[in-house]
Amino acid sequence: MTGLSLEKGWWRVVSDRTFDWTASDVLKSRIGRLDLPDEGLGYDRFGLESSSARLSLDLYHWLYVRYFRTQSFGIEHLPQRGPYILAPNHTGPFPLEALMIMVDVLLHGSPPRLVRPLVNRSLSALPYVNIVLSRTGCVWASRSNMDGLLNSGQPIMLFPEGPRALAKRLARRHRTMSFNPAVVELAIKHQVPIVPVGVVGLSNARGLLPYEGPDVPQPASVDDEILRLGLSNIVPVPTRVRIQYGAPFLFHDDSSVQDHTPTLVRSMTDRLQSEVQRLIDDLLAQD
């Protein structure tokens, strides 16, 4: 007998009813097969709350199907069980790729799984934003969190380009920036596969971010680009999004990886980046 009961606050009641009313049967059946982590009171240790997660997936599902009309290829490359790391590219200032990939893996993965996106931890200091992100499945990107997620068998999504890639100029939206080798180090440490993912189609929402990466050529005039893009600076336009999964990078039986040196890790990171770039180029070639 528990001293605490799972008393439903008003938010859970509202979100459960909204989900029941708006979600499609397909989504309900896929989510029903999910094993949402729960430490006993409806929350997991990273803040995921089942009702909020379901409602947010319902919203993302609408964006996925109706707004962005997402297509995906190569989902069969995803491991069916155990933890793995998804390594997609950023295409623009709003990391909507994470949402589209979450829904894609939920809808088309076999079995359906909830991929946990790792989010810049500076966002945890923002009021309300930190609650929304953590309740809907996002996790702050810190080493211990990544270790905890992979040790508990959950797949994670990590953007190797880092947050600076959110400020890619429009002309370079389909070029990957240099990948952080920490992704490969993490995969080697936990002996989990990395699945490279290429995403195109979300770069038309530019946002108003002033930051420029060091390897990005400066435009003649930042104001010109903002004026040209208009409202799409703030509201992502409904372009078709395409996702391509590549063959996973495996470390289980590679003995050379066990004694990994920085040089080896760097070369593997470059291979990963090349593979993601190849996936992006293949998607663009379909146009």
Partner: peptide, 11 residues
């Protein structure tokens, strides 16, 4: 902000 949710003994 953003410190690991998993604080093990080596945190």
């Amino acid at each position: 902000p953003g410190s690991g949710t998993y604080l093990d003994e080596t945190a």
